[in-house]
Amino acid sequence: MPAYRVFNRTTGDSFTCDGDQSVLKAMEAVGKKCVPVGCRGGGCGFCKIRVVEGDFECGKMSKAHVPPEALAQGEVLACRIYPQADLTIECVPQPVDAVVEQATRAKQTTTKAMR
């Protein structure tokens, strides 16, 4: 199975990906975090990227996150694309959930009952 190079031009990260491996899986395998990791199943939209250059095969993805117009512009889910050539990708900004943002900025737990 040939191995291809994936270059993320938003972050400058580069990693190898086999033709039968998803881009997200290849990224996780080398411990990189340049694309957010969600469900890994084409369902949640978390790992959305734009493929700027290079051919790829595509698995089933949620139409809610990749409607036909998006797909036509090269917007895909990294967990569902398998390179057929070297790829250049870029990150797609994700909408932020206000409740989560506030919660993640809160202090870590303060209970100290065991002292």
Binding site: D97, V100, A106, K107, Q108, T109, T111
Partner: peptide, 25 residues
Amino acid sequence: TADELGKAIFYHDRQLNERFLTVLT
């Protein structure tokens, strides 16, 4: 309480995990 949300969800880690809170279908 919301300030203890990390422990409320992950009793051992006591830290929020963004994927757990935001990945939905």
